[in-house]
Design a protein around this nucleic acid. Sequence first.
DNA 1: GTGAAAGCGCTAACAT
DNA 2: ATGTTAGCGCTTTCAC
Lengths: 332, 332
Amino acid sequence: MAITIYDVARDANVSMATVSRVVNGNQNVKPSTRRKVLESIERLGYRPNAVARGLASKKTTTIGVIIPDISTSFYGEVSRGIADIATMYEYNIILSNSDERSERELELLVDHLGKQVDGVIFMSDSVSEEVRQEMSKAPVPIVLAGTIDIEEQFPTVNIDYEQAAYESVVKLIENGHKKIAFITGPLSRDINRVQKKAGYERALKEAGIEINEEYVFEVEDTYDDSYESWKEIQKIEQQPTAFLASNSTLAVGILNGIRDAGYSVPEDYEIICYEHSNLTRIVRPQLTSVVVPLYDIGAVAMRLLTKLMDKEEVESQQINLPYHFAERDSLK
Amino acid sequence: MAITIYDVARDANVSMATVSRVVNGNQNVKPSTRRKVLESIERLGYRPNAVARGLASKKTTTIGVIIPDISTSFYGEVSRGIADIATMYEYNIILSNSDERSERELELLVDHLGKQVDGVIFMSDSVSEEVRQEMSKAPVPIVLAGTIDIEEQFPTVNIDYEQAAYESVVKLIENGHKKIAFITGPLSRDINRVQKKAGYERALKEAGIEINEEYVFEVEDTYDDSYESWKEIQKIEQQPTAFLASNSTLAVGILNGIRDAGYSVPEDYEIICYEHSNLTRIVRPQLTSVVVPLYDIGAVAMRLLTKLMDKEEVESQQINLPYHFAERDSLK
DNA sequence: GTGAAAGCGCTAACAT
DNA sequence: ATGTTAGCGCTTTCAC
């Protein structure tokens, strides 16, 4: 059996309460008794039991993180931002993958809440109705990171994807393009449909360019799917001459499709994309992109959550972080 | 205040013990009472408190995962393997990043153990003496994943990196190379020094090729460092003609260095590497590589941990998974 | 098949 | 400054 607070109390000739006080850094302890207790703790090798502490105090210093897939560079980077700030505020993280299955997200939410987490950071490409309901009933704060909440009901940290798409397409238009394609993951996801596609369309509309649904390529969010999609794109009679890709993986798929077919970027086609990894710098030509501050999205979301858990006032619950363009070689 | 087991008991006119039994699927409950209890649970919206359960039962159904950096593709993939098997066995994961700082690893170990995890999966590039001691004292099983334990003290899941390096270099030798370089992350890490470099040297020795320390390039484990290292390599009077890279990121750094300088792969230089991401398929030419089954390493480690936690017999504590070569275009 | 009761190890009033 | 005590919500003997 492990050493408990009771063993320490007896060894140091004080009460459990006093031991608890020194362990928790309470100032109401005489320096000499503190020393005595610390010595007993050291000698016996006492380690507080966080589970017992959690039950008694109703705080676990643990938060839940529900994420689509930790093995992607996008979510890996966001998670690191979350984790670093969590460490700073001495929270542990329970991390679970949802694969964006709403049903699984629901299970995980219930599961994490059952573990009495003090807060939750939720990531997904859409917030389903059932998930929204469960989150509404949650007894602890929840922050969305890199996740669109069309109802703006929950605290959220993002960039303005719509504006970024708009500005990207404006660049392409300024370079003389009129046949601009948008290659994206599933449009069932709010982030793709309500934000990125909307910005793409706004730029076209503003330039008086007719929106052509044939130029919207909806694929699975994988390199291979994007690579294959090039074959479809080539079949179109009115070939697009420029691409906005909704992430670096898709952009690289198209890029390789183009180059393996013997064409050149940016001479024959220009490409711009959202950047979610260093892939954009690794390929040739390097890709001009919207740099999404993934780490910061995670870090700021976690910081916001700490404030919410501490019941501090927060000015804004819907945070949009700045982004910038990395001008590289896939635009002329 | 949330609904407790006591509320359910009263509502269903049974004792707490009975509620506990139906919640835990104990068969010693009459179907009719079970139904009654289930109905109360449903109506009141009762959710078991896992913290209280953990305190009473001394099992938290949570494991600790200590990982260098979740934002790398290597560890992201391993983690996913761990997480999927953990889900299967209904364990949650507390995930923490150590950045491979031994001091931090120690803190995390103590921290996770304090949270009463039922087991730990530990990843690092070496096992320091202090960490080894703390792990030895741990009251729960610990499994190392993708991590070399030179003392073979702890259960471990890996591939035979030494043999893989050996076979890789043999391929290069068979292609006529005698000046073969090894580009690697810090040699302070056991995995690089004791395994990969050793295999590299064994192949050379066996072929009667003199080992030249000038051909061992030790860099930080980043794309940029590897890319820059090419400039150093070029200064050598006796240029190497082939490379073994200890991971895909370093391989791509060298590859781009070579190509940006106007040389060709595989015509001027050949490259082979350990594959830790799909980068090898994305770059041109695609890289011939040793495919490391990262997901499986995580999955098997977690499966092994479940057996250990259940005190099942396990035949072997040191598991080496199979690997294979992906023959692509960076070798002639 | 079901209930009573004693903890699990700690925190947090409340006394003193 | 320190001690006493009542829980926190559950599991787990042990009776019946």
